[in-house]
Amino acid sequence: MKSFDLHVRVEITNQRYTIIELTGFLDAHTVNAFENRIEEIVSSGQRQIVIDLKGLNYISSAGIGALMALTQRLRKESGNMVLLQPNEKVFKILDLLGFTKIFNVALKEEDVENYFQAV
């Protein structure tokens, strides 16, 4: 059932932050793959991370929990995480639950720079 997978693509666009592009679903089934990939990235020394959510169609509590754990870890290690351009559905869920006030959410790509400049 490949069509139900989560696809994770990592791109280092500049020296300040790493972009992790998520496509598909981040739910209880796919969250382990995401967490494993994140562990590799953070263990390699990356502390400034952008999670590109443009291609993410669904997020569950498991996915939100994984993003929260990453945020808390990075903040403890003087890092930062920004969620980039969640689609309307994912943004609405995050907003209804109050997570748009907890996560750094950039609705435009230009806004990402502001978050890292401010750090």
Binding site: S60, S61, A62, I64, M68, L96, L97, G98, I102
Partner: peptide
């Protein structure tokens, strides 16, 4: 509530069912 989730890091799923 979400503050409790931030401390415990679990229990969000059942909270969501009741909320939604």
């Amino acid at each position: 509530n979400i503050d409790e989730f931030l401390n415990k890091c679990h229990g969000l799923g059942t909270y969501i069912i009741h909320k939604f």
